[in-house]
């Protein structure tokens, strides 16, 4: 264990270990295809176990994987290109898509605050859960901007994604008839992980689900400060 502790002191090892574990779990996921074995979730859990067992501080790991974390910012900006690509194909249903994602983001923020308060959740914990249906880089930024704990938000985003991707396919096709509604339901509640499942339902579902990721991000960013101000 001391050897591992020493290895994690080096930036190259921390980076290689993170990428390597991700690749391994991605390969396993490709074979078994159950949303519960989500590669990101598995990599995070494994890394936490390794770091805890070998007594590595999170600060050390965080500093040495700064390069990976840095890529979050540019990747959010790059979503603008996806938004542009998909807007060309889905322009016809723009009103439905915009209204549904707006409603989804308001409901998402409101329901977290109401249920969380009902069950006695503390302010910082509730705010960290508020952007949970939004893609991680945006969710973390919304969390930081409104007084939440960004790394906790990242965890909630993954949990809700895995849940939505595993429960969604059992419910969504039974409740909704149109491809638009199915795509909106999946993408709004479970962002990228839900979109991977929406693609299995059909190309239209997949494209609309992908578009919802970006729109949920924008709307949640816009409505969160206002809704929070009503309660805190």
């Amino acid at each position: 264990m001391e050897v591992i502790n020493h290895l994690f002191e080096s930036e190259t090892f921390a980076l290689a270990a993170t990428l390597g574990l991700f690749l391994i779990f991605e390969a396993i996921y490709q074979k078994v295809k159950t949303p519960l074995l989500n590669p990101v979730l598995m990599t995070i859990i494994t890394l936490i176990v390794i770091l805890k067992l070998s007594d590595v501080q999170y600060e050390t790991y965080q500093a040495n994987t700064r390069m990976i974390h840095f890529m979050l910012g540019p990747s959010v900006v790059a979503l603008g290109v996806l938004l542009y690509e998909q807007l060309k194909t889905i322009g016809k249903n723009a009103v439905a898509i915009l209204s549904a994602t707006f409603l989804g983001s308001v409901m998402g923020v409101l329901s977290v605050i109401l249920i969380g308060k009902l069950f006695g959740g503390g302010e910082d914990l509730i705010i960290s859960m508020v952007p949970k249906s939004v893609t991680t880089p945006i969710a973390m930024a919304v969390s930081a901007q409104n007084g939440g704990i960004p790394s906790m938000t990242a965890v909630f985003v993954i949990i809700v994604g895995v849940l939505g991707a595993s429960i969604g396919p059992l419910i969504v096709p039974r409740v909704f008839k149109t491809a638009i509604a199915k795509g909106l339901a999946m993408g709004s509640c479970a962002h990228g992980i839900g979109t991977a499942q929406a693609i299995q339902m059909g190309m239209v579902e997949g494209a609309i689900s992908g578009l919802s990721i970006g729109l949920m991000g924008v709307f949640t960013t816009l409505v969160t400060p206002g809704i929070l101000a009503l309660f805190y």
């Binding site: 549904a100 994602t101 949990i159 849940l163 939505g164 149109t178 509604a181 709004s188």
Partner: peptide
């Protein structure tokens, strides 16, 4: 409870809005 409850709230509200307006 908060995460599961809110997930359903988002899934159903966005889905129904899409079904109705679409």
């Amino acid at each position: 409870v908060t995460i599961v409850g809110s997930m359903f709230a988002v899934m159903l509200s966005a889905g129904f809005a899409g079904e109705f307006l679409g």
